[in-house]
Design a protein around this nucleic acid. Sequence first.
DNA 1: ACAAAACGAGAGCACTGCTCTTGACAGCGA
DNA 2: TCGCTGTCAAGAGCAGTGCTCTCGTTTTGT
Lengths: 241, 241
Amino acid sequence: MLSDMTAKSIRARVRDELTSEIKAIARQQLATDGANLSLRAVARELGMVSSAVYRYFPSRDDLLTALIIDCYDELGEAAETAEAAVDRSDLLGRWLATGHGIRDWALANPAEYALIYGSPVPGYRAPETTVGPAARTTNVILALLADGVAAGTLTVADPVPGGGIVLPLPPELGAELDRIAATVCPDVPREVLSRGITAWIQLFGTVTFELFGRLQNMIESSRRNFFDRQLRVMAVYVGLR
Amino acid sequence: MLSDMTAKSIRARVRDELTSEIKAIARQQLATDGANLSLRAVARELGMVSSAVYRYFPSRDDLLTALIIDCYDELGEAAETAEAAVDRSDLLGRWLATGHGIRDWALANPAEYALIYGSPVPGYRAPETTVGPAARTTNVILALLADGVAAGTLTVADPVPGGGIVLPLPPELGAELDRIAATVCPDVPREVLSRGITAWIQLFGTVTFELFGRLQNMIESSRRNFFDRQLRVMAVYVGLR
DNA sequence: ACAAAACGAGAGCACTGCTCTTGACAGCGA
DNA sequence: TCGCTGTCAAGAGCAGTGCTCTCGTTTTGT
Protein backbone atom coordinates (compact mmCIF):
# COMPACT_ATOMS: atom_id res chain seq x y z
CA MET A 1 0.00 0.00 0.00
CA LEU A 2 2.45 2.51 1.24
CA SER A 3 5.09 1.20 -1.13
CA ASP A 4 2.55 1.53 -3.88
CA MET A 5 2.01 5.18 -3.09
CA THR A 6 5.67 5.98 -2.66
CA ALA A 7 6.53 4.10 -5.81
CA LYS A 8 3.97 6.10 -7.66
CA SER A 9 5.17 9.19 -5.94
CA ILE A 10 8.74 8.46 -6.88
CA ARG A 11 8.20 8.45 -10.60
CA ALA A 12 5.70 11.28 -10.37
CA ARG A 13 7.85 13.36 -8.08
CA VAL A 14 11.00 13.13 -10.14
CA ARG A 15 8.93 14.02 -13.14
CA ASP A 16 7.48 17.09 -11.47
CA GLU A 17 10.94 18.05 -10.31
CA LEU A 18 12.36 17.82 -13.82
CA THR A 19 9.36 19.68 -15.18
CA SER A 20 9.80 22.62 -12.87
CA GLU A 21 13.55 22.56 -13.43
CA ILE A 22 12.97 22.86 -17.16
CA LYS A 23 10.61 25.75 -16.56
CA ALA A 24 13.11 27.44 -14.27
CA ILE A 25 15.89 27.29 -16.85
CA ALA A 26 13.49 28.32 -19.58
CA ARG A 27 12.53 31.41 -17.59
CA GLN A 28 16.19 32.12 -17.07
CA GLN A 29 16.72 32.00 -20.83
CA LEU A 30 13.62 34.12 -21.29
CA ALA A 31 15.56 37.07 -19.95
CA THR A 32 18.18 36.88 -22.68
CA ASP A 33 16.35 35.40 -25.65
CA GLY A 34 12.82 36.61 -25.09
CA ALA A 35 9.89 34.65 -26.37
CA ASN A 36 11.97 32.78 -28.93
CA LEU A 37 13.91 30.73 -26.43
CA SER A 38 15.73 27.62 -27.53
CA LEU A 39 14.55 24.25 -26.35
CA ARG A 40 17.92 22.79 -27.23
CA ALA A 41 19.69 25.38 -25.10
CA VAL A 42 17.45 24.51 -22.16
CA ALA A 43 18.21 20.84 -22.64
CA ARG A 44 21.92 21.57 -22.93
CA GLU A 45 21.80 23.50 -19.68
CA LEU A 46 20.25 20.48 -18.01
CA GLY A 47 22.76 18.03 -19.45
CA MET A 48 19.98 16.38 -21.37
CA VAL A 49 19.53 15.89 -25.06
CA SER A 50 16.89 17.97 -26.77
CA SER A 51 14.57 15.11 -27.55
CA ALA A 52 14.31 14.24 -23.88
CA VAL A 53 12.65 17.55 -23.13
CA TYR A 54 9.80 16.55 -25.41
CA ARG A 55 8.87 13.90 -22.87
CA TYR A 56 7.88 16.74 -20.58
CA PHE A 57 6.55 19.32 -22.97
CA PRO A 58 5.11 18.08 -26.26
CA SER A 59 6.19 21.25 -28.08
CA ARG A 60 7.94 24.52 -27.57
CA ASP A 61 4.60 26.31 -27.51
CA ASP A 62 3.43 24.12 -24.65
CA LEU A 63 6.48 25.07 -22.66
CA LEU A 64 5.73 28.69 -23.44
CA THR A 65 2.15 28.21 -22.32
CA ALA A 66 3.30 26.73 -19.03
CA LEU A 67 5.58 29.71 -18.51
CA ILE A 68 2.78 32.13 -19.35
CA ILE A 69 0.45 30.51 -16.84
CA ASP A 70 3.14 30.61 -14.16
CA CYS A 71 3.79 34.27 -14.85
CA TYR A 72 0.12 35.20 -14.76
CA ASP A 73 -0.18 33.39 -11.47
CA GLU A 74 2.86 35.07 -10.01
CA LEU A 75 1.72 38.51 -11.08
CA GLY A 76 -1.77 37.83 -9.80
CA GLU A 77 -0.41 36.64 -6.49
CA ALA A 78 1.85 39.68 -6.23
CA ALA A 79 -1.13 41.94 -6.75
CA GLU A 80 -3.29 39.99 -4.33
CA THR A 81 -0.79 39.87 -1.48
CA ALA A 82 0.09 43.54 -1.86
CA GLU A 83 -3.55 44.48 -1.84
CA ALA A 84 -4.46 42.16 1.02
CA ALA A 85 -2.04 43.93 3.35
CA VAL A 86 -4.15 47.10 3.34
CA ASP A 87 -7.16 47.80 5.50
CA ARG A 88 -10.30 46.82 3.58
CA SER A 89 -11.96 50.17 4.06
CA ASP A 90 -8.98 52.05 2.64
CA LEU A 91 -9.92 51.91 -1.02
CA LEU A 92 -7.25 54.34 -2.15
CA GLY A 93 -4.60 52.41 -0.25
CA ARG A 94 -5.75 49.15 -1.77
CA TRP A 95 -5.61 50.65 -5.25
CA LEU A 96 -2.13 52.03 -4.71
CA ALA A 97 -0.92 48.76 -3.26
CA THR A 98 -2.31 46.83 -6.19
CA GLY A 99 -0.66 49.11 -8.70
CA HIS A 100 2.72 49.13 -7.03
CA GLY A 101 2.54 45.39 -6.50
CA ILE A 102 2.02 44.90 -10.21
CA ARG A 103 4.77 47.36 -11.13
CA ASP A 104 7.23 45.90 -8.66
CA TRP A 105 6.72 42.41 -10.03
CA ALA A 106 7.07 43.69 -13.57
CA LEU A 107 10.30 45.51 -12.75
CA ALA A 108 11.67 42.39 -11.07
CA ASN A 109 10.63 40.17 -13.98
CA PRO A 110 10.74 42.32 -17.11
CA ALA A 111 11.08 39.44 -19.57
CA GLU A 112 8.17 37.64 -17.97
CA TYR A 113 6.04 40.77 -18.10
CA ALA A 114 6.90 41.20 -21.76
CA LEU A 115 5.90 37.60 -22.34
CA ILE A 116 2.39 38.07 -21.00
CA TYR A 117 1.73 41.75 -21.74
CA GLY A 118 3.89 42.32 -24.80
CA SER A 119 3.31 41.67 -28.46
CA PRO A 120 1.33 38.52 -29.06
CA VAL A 121 3.59 35.78 -30.43
CA PRO A 122 2.62 35.35 -34.07
CA GLY A 123 1.05 32.00 -34.75
CA TYR A 124 0.68 31.32 -31.05
CA ARG A 125 -2.85 31.00 -29.79
CA ALA A 126 -3.21 31.28 -26.03
CA PRO A 127 -5.18 28.25 -24.83
CA GLU A 128 -8.20 28.49 -22.58
CA THR A 129 -6.18 27.48 -19.52
CA THR A 130 -4.49 30.88 -19.45
CA VAL A 131 -7.59 33.01 -19.01
CA GLY A 132 -8.11 32.01 -15.39
CA PRO A 133 -4.66 33.03 -14.15
CA ALA A 134 -4.77 36.06 -16.41
CA ALA A 135 -7.93 37.29 -14.71
CA ARG A 136 -6.47 37.31 -11.24
CA THR A 137 -5.09 40.85 -11.41
CA THR A 138 -8.22 42.28 -12.93
CA ASN A 139 -10.30 40.49 -10.33
CA VAL A 140 -8.44 42.37 -7.62
CA ILE A 141 -9.44 45.66 -9.20
CA LEU A 142 -12.99 44.54 -9.80
CA ALA A 143 -13.34 43.54 -6.15
CA LEU A 144 -12.05 46.97 -5.27
CA LEU A 145 -14.76 48.57 -7.37
CA ALA A 146 -17.45 46.30 -5.93
CA ASP A 147 -16.40 47.12 -2.37
CA GLY A 148 -16.45 50.81 -3.21
CA VAL A 149 -19.95 50.50 -4.60
CA ALA A 150 -21.12 48.51 -1.59
CA ALA A 151 -19.68 51.10 0.76
CA GLY A 152 -21.38 53.88 -1.13
CA THR A 153 -18.08 55.51 -2.04
CA LEU A 154 -18.31 54.81 -5.74
CA THR A 155 -21.50 56.00 -7.36
CA VAL A 156 -22.84 56.81 -10.76
CA ALA A 157 -22.46 60.49 -9.99
CA ASP A 158 -19.34 62.45 -10.80
CA PRO A 159 -16.67 61.58 -8.23
CA VAL A 160 -15.11 65.01 -8.64
CA PRO A 161 -17.51 67.35 -6.83
CA GLY A 162 -18.64 70.12 -9.12
CA GLY A 163 -16.42 68.89 -11.91
CA GLY A 164 -17.45 67.86 -15.34
CA ILE A 165 -15.14 64.96 -15.99
CA VAL A 166 -17.93 62.46 -16.36
CA LEU A 167 -19.01 62.27 -19.96
CA PRO A 168 -22.21 60.56 -21.06
CA LEU A 169 -21.70 57.00 -22.23
CA PRO A 170 -22.69 56.22 -25.82
CA PRO A 171 -25.60 53.75 -25.72
CA GLU A 172 -23.82 50.85 -27.46
CA LEU A 173 -20.82 51.19 -25.18
CA GLY A 174 -23.10 51.41 -22.17
CA ALA A 175 -24.88 48.23 -23.19
CA GLU A 176 -21.58 46.46 -23.58
CA LEU A 177 -20.45 47.64 -20.17
CA ASP A 178 -23.70 46.33 -18.71
CA ARG A 179 -23.01 42.97 -20.30
CA ILE A 180 -19.54 42.86 -18.76
CA ALA A 181 -20.82 43.92 -15.36
CA ALA A 182 -23.55 41.29 -15.43
CA THR A 183 -21.06 38.46 -15.80
CA VAL A 184 -18.25 39.66 -13.60
CA CYS A 185 -19.39 42.32 -11.13
CA PRO A 186 -23.19 42.51 -10.99
CA ASP A 187 -23.52 45.38 -8.55
CA VAL A 188 -21.13 47.78 -10.25
CA PRO A 189 -22.93 50.35 -12.39
CA ARG A 190 -21.69 50.92 -15.91
CA GLU A 191 -20.31 54.37 -15.12
CA VAL A 192 -18.15 53.06 -12.30
CA LEU A 193 -17.00 50.13 -14.39
CA SER A 194 -16.11 52.46 -17.23
CA ARG A 195 -13.94 54.58 -14.96
CA GLY A 196 -12.32 51.47 -13.54
CA ILE A 197 -11.38 50.22 -17.00
CA THR A 198 -9.81 53.55 -17.81
CA ALA A 199 -7.76 53.42 -14.63
CA TRP A 200 -6.85 49.79 -15.36
CA ILE A 201 -5.56 50.71 -18.80
CA GLN A 202 -3.63 53.66 -17.39
CA LEU A 203 -1.99 51.38 -14.84
CA PHE A 204 -0.79 48.79 -17.30
CA GLY A 205 -0.08 51.37 -19.98
CA THR A 206 2.31 53.16 -17.66
CA VAL A 207 4.05 49.94 -16.62
CA THR A 208 4.34 48.87 -20.25
CA PHE A 209 5.74 52.23 -21.32
CA GLU A 210 8.29 52.14 -18.53
CA LEU A 211 9.41 48.58 -19.24
CA PHE A 212 9.43 48.92 -23.01
CA GLY A 213 11.65 51.97 -22.91
CA ARG A 214 9.13 54.59 -23.98
CA LEU A 215 9.97 56.74 -20.94
CA GLN A 216 13.63 56.94 -21.84
CA ASN A 217 15.00 60.47 -22.13
CA MET A 218 11.89 61.60 -20.31
CA ILE A 219 11.10 60.24 -16.88
CA GLU A 220 14.30 58.68 -15.63
CA SER A 221 15.09 59.20 -11.98
CA SER A 222 11.59 59.58 -10.56
CA ARG A 223 9.78 56.74 -12.22
CA ARG A 224 8.26 55.41 -9.03
CA ASN A 225 7.03 58.87 -8.18
CA PHE A 226 5.65 59.21 -11.65
CA PHE A 227 3.84 55.90 -11.47
CA ASP A 228 2.49 56.69 -8.05
CA ARG A 229 1.13 59.95 -9.35
CA GLN A 230 -0.49 58.22 -12.30
CA LEU A 231 -2.22 55.91 -9.83
CA ARG A 232 -3.41 58.79 -7.71
CA VAL A 233 -4.69 60.76 -10.67
CA MET A 234 -6.74 57.78 -11.75
CA ALA A 235 -7.89 57.25 -8.17
CA VAL A 236 -9.32 60.75 -8.13
CA TYR A 237 -10.96 60.13 -11.49
CA VAL A 238 -12.53 56.88 -10.33
CA GLY A 239 -13.46 58.29 -6.94
CA LEU A 240 -11.30 56.05 -4.77
CA ARG A 241 -10.64 57.60 -1.40
CA MET B 1 26.91 64.27 -68.70
CA LEU B 2 23.37 63.17 -69.12
CA SER B 3 24.48 59.62 -69.82
CA ASP B 4 26.64 59.86 -66.75
CA MET B 5 23.65 60.82 -64.65
CA THR B 6 21.39 58.18 -66.14
CA ALA B 7 24.13 55.62 -65.80
CA LYS B 8 24.46 56.59 -62.18
CA SER B 9 20.73 56.58 -61.86
CA ILE B 10 20.46 53.13 -63.36
CA ARG B 11 22.56 51.35 -60.78
CA ALA B 12 21.24 53.44 -57.94
CA ARG B 13 17.64 53.25 -59.04
CA VAL B 14 17.52 49.50 -59.48
CA ARG B 15 19.18 49.23 -56.12
CA ASP B 16 16.63 51.46 -54.47
CA GLU B 17 13.90 49.53 -56.19
CA LEU B 18 15.20 46.20 -54.95
CA THR B 19 15.71 47.66 -51.49
CA SER B 20 12.13 48.83 -51.19
CA GLU B 21 10.89 45.60 -52.73
CA ILE B 22 12.72 43.66 -50.07
CA LYS B 23 11.20 45.86 -47.42
CA ALA B 24 7.74 45.45 -48.91
CA ILE B 25 7.94 41.67 -48.86
CA ALA B 26 9.47 41.74 -45.40
CA ARG B 27 6.53 43.80 -44.13
CA GLN B 28 4.21 41.35 -45.79
CA GLN B 29 5.89 38.53 -43.91
CA LEU B 30 5.79 40.61 -40.75
CA ALA B 31 2.05 40.05 -40.61
CA THR B 32 2.43 36.27 -40.40
CA ASP B 33 5.78 35.74 -38.72
CA GLY B 34 6.07 38.81 -36.54
CA ALA B 35 9.44 40.17 -35.58
CA ASN B 36 11.20 36.88 -36.32
CA LEU B 37 10.76 37.03 -40.05
CA SER B 38 12.91 34.90 -42.30
CA LEU B 39 15.44 36.52 -44.56
CA ARG B 40 15.56 33.38 -46.62
CA ALA B 41 11.81 33.43 -47.11
CA VAL B 42 12.01 37.03 -48.28
CA ALA B 43 14.74 36.09 -50.72
CA ARG B 44 12.77 33.09 -51.91
CA GLU B 45 9.76 35.30 -52.56
CA LEU B 46 11.95 37.53 -54.69
CA GLY B 47 13.46 34.64 -56.64
CA MET B 48 16.84 35.51 -55.20
CA VAL B 49 19.21 33.47 -53.14
CA SER B 50 19.52 34.41 -49.48
CA SER B 51 23.07 35.65 -49.69
CA ALA B 52 22.05 38.22 -52.30
CA VAL B 53 19.84 39.99 -49.80
CA TYR B 54 22.91 40.70 -47.71
CA ARG B 55 24.11 43.03 -50.45
CA TYR B 56 21.22 45.28 -49.49
CA PHE B 57 20.94 44.77 -45.75
CA PRO B 58 24.08 43.74 -43.90
CA SER B 59 22.07 41.78 -41.36
CA ARG B 60 18.56 40.81 -40.43
CA ASP B 61 18.58 43.41 -37.67
CA ASP B 62 19.39 46.12 -40.18
CA LEU B 63 16.40 45.10 -42.25
CA LEU B 64 14.32 45.21 -39.09
CA THR B 65 15.66 48.66 -38.30
CA ALA B 66 14.71 49.88 -41.76
CA LEU B 67 11.21 48.51 -41.27
CA ILE B 68 10.95 50.14 -37.85
CA ILE B 69 11.95 53.52 -39.24
CA ASP B 70 9.45 53.20 -42.07
CA CYS B 71 6.70 52.30 -39.63
CA TYR B 72 7.49 55.16 -37.28
CA ASP B 73 7.39 57.51 -40.24
CA GLU B 74 4.11 56.13 -41.51
CA LEU B 75 2.49 56.34 -38.11
CA GLY B 76 3.84 59.83 -37.60
CA GLU B 77 2.57 60.92 -40.98
CA ALA B 78 -0.84 59.38 -40.28
CA ALA B 79 -1.06 61.35 -37.06
CA GLU B 80 0.17 64.54 -38.69
CA THR B 81 -2.19 64.47 -41.64
CA ALA B 82 -5.19 63.57 -39.50
CA GLU B 83 -4.39 66.38 -37.12
CA ALA B 84 -3.62 68.90 -39.86
CA ALA B 85 -7.13 68.58 -41.27
CA VAL B 86 -8.67 70.19 -38.22
CA ASP B 87 -9.00 73.90 -37.55
CA ARG B 88 -6.00 75.06 -35.53
CA SER B 89 -8.08 76.66 -32.83
CA ASP B 90 -10.09 73.49 -32.24
CA LEU B 91 -7.79 71.85 -29.71
CA LEU B 92 -10.22 69.10 -28.77
CA GLY B 93 -10.79 68.28 -32.45
CA ARG B 94 -7.07 68.15 -33.08
CA TRP B 95 -6.56 65.82 -30.12
CA LEU B 96 -9.35 63.51 -31.25
CA ALA B 97 -8.08 63.50 -34.83
CA THR B 98 -4.58 62.66 -33.66
CA GLY B 99 -5.78 59.80 -31.52
CA HIS B 100 -8.04 58.30 -34.14
CA GLY B 101 -5.35 58.73 -36.76
CA ILE B 102 -2.95 56.72 -34.65
CA ARG B 103 -5.53 54.06 -33.86
CA ASP B 104 -6.66 53.77 -37.47
CA TRP B 105 -3.11 53.25 -38.66
CA ALA B 106 -2.51 50.69 -35.92
CA LEU B 107 -5.66 48.76 -36.82
CA ALA B 108 -4.67 48.79 -40.48
CA ASN B 109 -1.11 47.68 -39.69
CA PRO B 110 -1.28 45.60 -36.52
CA ALA B 111 1.97 43.72 -37.08
CA GLU B 112 3.80 46.96 -37.76
CA TYR B 113 2.35 48.52 -34.64
CA ALA B 114 3.46 45.51 -32.61
CA LEU B 115 6.91 45.88 -34.10
CA ILE B 116 7.37 49.44 -32.88
CA TYR B 117 5.20 49.49 -29.76
CA GLY B 118 5.37 45.89 -28.64
CA SER B 119 7.88 43.97 -26.61
CA PRO B 120 11.42 45.07 -27.30
CA VAL B 121 13.25 42.42 -29.33
CA PRO B 122 15.79 40.88 -26.94
CA GLY B 123 19.34 41.59 -27.97
CA TYR B 124 18.19 44.24 -30.41
CA ARG B 125 19.29 47.76 -29.66
CA ALA B 126 17.38 50.45 -31.53
CA PRO B 127 19.94 52.68 -33.24
CA GLU B 128 19.94 56.44 -32.96
CA THR B 129 18.36 56.85 -36.39
CA THR B 130 15.01 55.64 -35.06
CA VAL B 131 14.48 58.31 -32.44
CA GLY B 132 13.70 61.02 -34.97
CA PRO B 133 10.86 59.19 -36.72
CA ALA B 134 9.69 57.83 -33.37
CA ALA B 135 9.25 61.36 -32.04
CA ARG B 136 6.92 62.49 -34.79
CA THR B 137 3.73 61.36 -33.10
CA THR B 138 4.69 62.78 -29.73
CA ASN B 139 5.65 66.03 -31.39
CA VAL B 140 2.11 66.37 -32.68
CA ILE B 141 0.78 66.14 -29.15
CA LEU B 142 3.44 68.48 -27.78
CA ALA B 143 2.56 71.08 -30.42
CA LEU B 144 -1.04 70.70 -29.35
CA LEU B 145 -0.10 71.43 -25.76
CA ALA B 146 2.07 74.37 -26.75
CA ASP B 147 -0.74 75.87 -28.83
CA GLY B 148 -3.14 75.43 -25.94
CA VAL B 149 -0.75 77.19 -23.61
CA ALA B 150 -0.19 79.99 -26.10
CA ALA B 151 -3.94 80.43 -26.51
CA GLY B 152 -4.43 80.55 -22.78
CA THR B 153 -6.62 77.46 -22.79
CA LEU B 154 -4.17 75.24 -20.96
CA THR B 155 -2.95 76.65 -17.68
CA VAL B 156 -1.36 75.50 -14.51
CA ALA B 157 -4.70 75.74 -12.79
CA ASP B 158 -7.11 72.85 -12.55
CA PRO B 159 -8.82 72.45 -15.93
CA VAL B 160 -11.90 71.01 -14.24
CA PRO B 161 -13.60 74.01 -12.62
CA GLY B 162 -14.11 73.42 -8.95
CA GLY B 163 -12.73 69.94 -9.21
CA GLY B 164 -9.82 68.53 -7.34
CA ILE B 165 -8.28 66.31 -9.95
CA VAL B 166 -5.00 68.17 -9.98
CA LEU B 167 -2.65 66.70 -7.44
CA PRO B 168 0.54 68.40 -6.33
CA LEU B 169 3.64 67.23 -8.19
CA PRO B 170 6.41 65.67 -6.11
CA PRO B 171 9.47 67.95 -6.35
CA GLU B 172 11.79 65.44 -8.05
CA LEU B 173 9.15 64.62 -10.63
CA GLY B 174 8.48 68.31 -11.14
CA ALA B 175 12.14 68.97 -11.74
CA GLU B 176 12.30 66.18 -14.25
CA LEU B 177 9.26 67.52 -16.05
CA ASP B 178 10.91 70.94 -16.18
CA ARG B 179 13.97 69.37 -17.73
CA ILE B 180 11.84 67.69 -20.39
CA ALA B 181 9.91 70.86 -21.11
CA ALA B 182 13.10 72.90 -21.42
CA THR B 183 14.40 70.72 -24.25
CA VAL B 184 11.23 70.00 -26.14
CA CYS B 185 8.46 72.49 -25.31
CA PRO B 186 9.86 75.47 -23.41
CA ASP B 187 6.60 77.33 -22.87
CA VAL B 188 4.59 74.43 -21.47
CA PRO B 189 4.42 74.45 -17.68
CA ARG B 190 5.18 71.26 -15.84
CA GLU B 191 1.59 70.73 -14.76
CA VAL B 192 0.29 70.88 -18.31
CA LEU B 193 3.08 68.62 -19.54
CA SER B 194 2.31 66.14 -16.80
CA ARG B 195 -1.34 65.97 -17.82
CA GLY B 196 -0.33 65.61 -21.44
CA ILE B 197 1.92 62.66 -20.69
CA THR B 198 -0.89 60.96 -18.82
CA ALA B 199 -3.20 61.44 -21.79
CA TRP B 200 -0.46 60.25 -24.14
CA ILE B 201 -0.03 57.04 -22.15
CA GLN B 202 -3.77 56.50 -22.03
CA LEU B 203 -3.96 56.88 -25.80
CA PHE B 204 -1.27 54.34 -26.60
CA GLY B 205 -2.25 52.11 -23.71
CA THR B 206 -5.75 51.79 -25.09
CA VAL B 207 -4.53 51.11 -28.62
CA THR B 208 -2.06 48.53 -27.32
CA PHE B 209 -4.68 46.79 -25.21
CA GLU B 210 -7.06 46.66 -28.15
CA LEU B 211 -4.45 45.30 -30.57
CA PHE B 212 -2.89 42.86 -28.15
CA GLY B 213 -6.22 41.26 -27.33
CA ARG B 214 -6.64 42.51 -23.77
CA LEU B 215 -10.11 43.85 -24.60
CA GLN B 216 -11.38 40.46 -25.72
CA ASN B 217 -14.50 39.27 -23.96
CA MET B 218 -14.95 42.84 -22.76
CA ILE B 219 -15.25 45.63 -25.27
CA GLU B 220 -16.01 43.97 -28.58
CA SER B 221 -18.54 45.73 -30.78
CA SER B 222 -18.04 49.32 -29.66
CA ARG B 223 -14.30 49.61 -29.64
CA ARG B 224 -14.19 52.80 -31.62
CA ASN B 225 -16.74 54.34 -29.29
CA PHE B 226 -14.71 53.16 -26.34
CA PHE B 227 -11.50 54.62 -27.71
CA ASP B 228 -13.22 57.89 -28.56
CA ARG B 229 -14.52 58.11 -25.02
CA GLN B 230 -11.07 57.42 -23.63
CA LEU B 231 -9.76 60.30 -25.70
CA ARG B 232 -12.53 62.61 -24.50
CA VAL B 233 -12.04 61.70 -20.86
CA MET B 234 -8.38 62.57 -21.14
CA ALA B 235 -9.23 65.73 -23.04
CA VAL B 236 -11.34 66.88 -20.12
CA TYR B 237 -8.53 65.98 -17.74
CA VAL B 238 -5.95 67.88 -19.75
CA GLY B 239 -8.30 70.81 -20.38
CA LEU B 240 -8.53 70.51 -24.15
CA ARG B 241 -11.66 72.20 -25.47
C1' DA C 1 39.68 49.75 -73.04
C1' DC C 2 40.85 48.43 -68.44
C1' DA C 3 40.85 48.14 -63.57
C1' DA C 4 37.58 48.39 -59.86
C1' DA C 5 33.51 47.93 -57.81
C1' DA C 6 29.09 45.74 -57.35
C1' DC C 7 26.35 41.82 -57.97
C1' DG C 8 23.99 37.03 -57.94
C1' DA C 9 24.72 32.25 -57.20
C1' DG C 10 26.26 28.49 -54.59
C1' DA C 11 28.48 25.93 -50.92
C1' DG C 12 29.09 25.61 -46.27
C1' DC C 13 28.87 26.30 -40.94
C1' DA C 14 26.45 26.23 -36.76
C1' DC C 15 22.11 26.52 -35.07
C1' DT C 16 16.92 25.69 -34.49
C1' DG C 17 12.21 22.79 -33.67
C1' DC C 18 10.71 18.43 -34.21
C1' DT C 19 10.26 13.24 -35.39
C1' DC C 20 11.59 8.60 -35.31
C1' DT C 21 14.06 4.70 -33.71
C1' DT C 22 16.91 2.24 -30.40
C1' DG C 23 18.32 0.56 -26.14
C1' DA C 24 18.08 0.78 -21.03
C1' DC C 25 15.68 0.81 -16.80
C1' DA C 26 11.89 0.64 -13.31
C1' DG C 27 7.60 -0.99 -11.68
C1' DC C 28 4.06 -4.53 -12.15
C1' DG C 29 1.63 -9.19 -11.73
C1' DA C 30 2.49 -14.16 -11.56
C1' DT D 1 12.24 -14.38 -9.00
C1' DC D 2 10.92 -13.90 -13.97
C1' DG D 3 8.94 -11.78 -17.78
C1' DC D 4 5.91 -7.88 -19.38
C1' DT D 5 4.86 -3.15 -20.01
C1' DG D 6 5.32 1.61 -19.94
C1' DT D 7 8.58 5.33 -19.35
C1' DC D 8 12.80 7.38 -20.22
C1' DA D 9 17.26 9.33 -22.37
C1' DA D 10 19.99 9.16 -26.32
C1' DG D 11 21.13 9.54 -31.07
C1' DA D 12 20.34 10.19 -35.96
C1' DG D 13 18.03 12.69 -39.16
C1' DC D 14 14.97 16.30 -41.70
C1' DA D 15 13.92 20.86 -43.00
C1' DG D 16 14.66 25.36 -41.94
C1' DT D 17 17.41 29.56 -40.14
C1' DG D 18 21.24 33.65 -40.06
C1' DC D 19 25.40 34.43 -41.87
C1' DT D 20 30.13 34.01 -44.30
C1' DC D 21 33.01 33.00 -47.97
C1' DT D 22 34.24 32.24 -52.66
C1' DC D 23 33.59 32.30 -57.55
C1' DG D 24 32.33 33.97 -62.03
C1' DT D 25 29.68 37.70 -64.24
C1' DT D 26 28.10 42.25 -65.02
C1' DT D 27 28.29 47.06 -64.54
C1' DT D 28 30.67 51.33 -63.46
C1' DG D 29 34.16 55.06 -63.42
C1' DT D 30 38.25 56.62 -65.59
